[in-house]
């Protein structure tokens, strides 16, 4: 395959970036998108140019490190697929592919296609945990949880925190991510004790980080590699309303 690539190049947070054109030949349709970028980088290194910086780690679609907005869609055109699991056979020979970083004010570009997603860590650090020790794996199984609840919680827990939801949202809102983290723990008996405190603090941390507001487009869930449902946002909205009312009437423990 021959490809024309337009890649966002930016030296650092302070520097301005722009799209730069590259030509790449002999790309195997069976290679992954990141292997295609590896090929480009090897070519650039051999020509003495600075290679393109991009995030990657497990390359198995489970760690949430890879990012990239490919032709305007985070993680590219393939549904429920991370960039590392996207293969070049989904592109045409001779196609022009525009590759940009995930764009949002709370995700500053560190270098080329790498963005700093520490804003997500901040949200998890403030409420994405259970304070009391719940024991090890066998103890977890000692508390019966109905299948429906366990499934819903597991659906939310599938979130790998990649940030594609923010990148896809026209408002750069993080509500699918925060909704997933809230729903994951608030649904379970181990997490339910702190559900009010959790949702209040996670939402205010999300606001402080400067993410936008959800307007219910549904773009986030549509691009999510783990297909986190919009239900988690409704769940977060519901839990936040209840928690706020309890808070106003001073019943939060």
């Amino acid at each position: 395959m021959k490809l024309k690539l337009k890649i966002w190049r930016q030296k650092s947070v302070e520097m301005e970036g722009s799209l730069v054109d590259y030509q790449l030949a002999d790309v195997s349709p069976d290679s992954s998108f990141l292997e295609m970028l590896d090929l480009l980088n090897e070519q650039m290194i051999s020509e003495g140019e600075e290679p393109v910086a991009f995030d990657h780690d497990c390359r198995e679609g489970i760690c949430g490190t890879c990012s990239l907005t490919i032709n305007g869609i985070p993680h590219g055109p393939q549904k429920a697929t991370t960039t590392c699991q996207l293969h070049m056979r989904h592109f045409r020979d001779g196609e022009t592919i525009v590759i940009e970083p995930f764009r949002a004010r709370p995700f500053p570009v560190i270098s080329d296609l790498i963005v700093d997603r520490a804003a997500f860590d901040g949200i998890v650090q403030i409420g994405g945990f259970i304070t009391a020790r719940t024991g090890s794996a066998p103890d977890g199984n000692a508390i019966p949880i109905s299948k429906g609840v366990a499934d819903k919680s597991m659906d939310a827990a599938a979130c790998i925190g990649c940030g594609a939801c923010v990148a896809a949202c026209k408002n750069a809102s993080a509500m699918l991510f925060v909704g997933a983290k809230v729903a994951h723990l608030n649904l379970l008996p181990q997490g339910a004790a702190e559900k009010d405190r959790r949702v209040l603090s996670m939402v205010s941390q999300m606001d402080r980080a400067g993410f936008g507001n959800c307007t219910n487009f549904g773009e986030c869930s549509a691009v999510c590699p783990k297909e986190i449902p919009l239900d988690v946002i409704a769940k977060m909205n519901r839990d936040y309303a209840t928690a706020s009312l309890k808070n106003i009437f001073s019943q939060v423990g």
Partner: peptide
Amino acid sequence: VLTIENRLARPLRYEAEDTVEATISSRAM
């Protein structure tokens, strides 16, 4: 207020932006 906050949350827009799911009605609000 919300629209201004939303615009500020993405100061630099995508050069190639695509839409997968959002309806025209929702985007035109």
